[in-house]
Design a protein around this nucleic acid. Structure first.
Length: 259
DNA sequence: ATGTCTAAAGCATTTAGA
C-alpha cells in the first residue's frame, strides 16, 4: 500500500501538476493539504476521471485538506480536530481506508513567533497530541500524514542557525513534535533514512530548490500496529522542479500489509 | 530585511498568508 502526503499549495492552480503526479505514481492514498479552495470548488470530477475518489474539507482562500483513494472509497470518520468547537480552520480529516486509519493534517505555520499565530499553533499541537493518544489507545493501524510545519531536528534544515527563532523550528515546536512521537509513533522517513538529509519543502524565494535550501516538514507517523509493515519511504523531489510547482514535494511510504 | 507565489476584492492593483 502506497500512502503519500502532498501539500499542493492551491489545488486549483496546481491541478495539472497534481494529476500528472497521481498518474505517474498511482498512490493508493494521497493526503492533500492547502487546497485553498471553498468546499464547492474542489475538482472532484477531474480526479474521478483518473480513478480517484476524494473526501475533502475546504475553506475559502486558506487551508483545506483532502484524502484521495484509488479504487475503494475512503470511509470518513471525522473532520475538524476535536478540542475546540470555535476553531473554524479546515486542517484535519480522518478516514478508514482498507483497514487503515488515515489522518490528514495541516498543522498551523505559526509565524510570526511569538504572537497569537504561534499560540494557535501550539494549542493546535496539544489537541493533536490528545487525539493521537486516543488513536494509539485504540490499537488500530493508524498513519498521521501531513504538513506538520515542524523540522524535528537540525538534520531536517539546510541551515539550522537561520531558523532557531522561526515558528517551524523554535524549541516549543520541536518539543511538541518530540512529545507526540514519544507516545509511540514511528517517523517513517527518518526511520528508513536515519542519517540522510531529506527535504520535502523548498521556498520560492531566491532559488531555494536550485540551491537545495530545503526543509523536512511533511511527515508520515505510523502507529505501532503499522510500523512493522514499513518497507520504503521517500520524497518525489523532482515534482518540485516542474512548471508551476507547489513549494512542497510529495512524500510517501510503502507498506506491506500482507494481503 | 530580503525574496516568490497565489487568491481575494473588484476590475487594476494592493493585501495577506505562507
Amino acid at each position: 500500500m502506497l500512502i503519500a502526503t502532498f501539500n499542493v499549495n492551491g489545488i486549483t492552480s496546481r491541478l495539472p501538476a497534481l494529476l500528472q503526479w497521481l498518474e505517474e505514481k498511482q498512490p493508493d492514498v494521497a493526503c492533500l493539504q492547502e487546497l485553498k479552495a471553498p468546499q464547492e470548488k474542489f475538482p472532484e470530477a477531474a480526479l474521478k476521471e483518473i480513478g480517484y475518489h476524494a473526501i475533502w474539507h475546504g475553506q475559502k482562500s486558506w487551508n483545506g485538506v483532502a484524502i484521495l483513494t484509488r479504487g475503494e472509497a475512503a470511509q470518513e470518520i471525522g473532520r475538524g480536530l476535536p478540542g475546540d468547537p470555535a476553531d473554524e480552520q479546515s486542517r484535519y480529516i480522518e478516514a478508514a481506508v482498507n483497514g487503515v486509519m488515515v489522518c490528514c493534517l495541516y498543522l498551523p505555520n505559526g509565524n510570526p513567533a511569538p504572537g497569537p499565530k504561534f499560540d494557535y499553533k501550539l494549542q493546535w499541537f496539544e489537541r493533536l497530541i490528545l487525539r493521537a493518544a486516543e488513536l494509539l489507545e485504540s490499537g488500530a493501524p493508524v498513519v498521521l500524514a501531513g504538513d506538520f510545519n515542524v523540522m524535528p531536528t537540525e538534520l531536517d534544515v539546510y541551515k539550522p542557525e537561520r531558523w532557531v527563532n522561526d515558528a517551524l523550528f523554535r524549541p516549543e515546536t520541536r518539543e511538541a513534535f518530540h512529545r507526540l512521537v514519544a507516545q509511540g509513533w514511528c517517523d517513517a522517513l527518518r526511520t528508513m533514512h536515519p542519517d540522510e538529509r531529506i527535504y520535502t519543502f523548498w521556498d520560492y524565494f531566491r532559488d531555494a530548490y536550485g540551491r537545495n535550501a530545503g526543509l523536512r516538514i511533511d511527515h508520515l507517523l505510523l502507529s505501532p500496529a503499522l510500523a512493522g509493515s514499513l518497507r520504503a519511504a521517500g520524497v518525489d523531489r523532482e515534482v518540485r522542479g516542474r512548471e508551476k510547482p507547489s513549494d512542497h514535494a510529495p512524500t510517501w511510504i510503502k507498506l506491506d500489509l500482507g494481503r
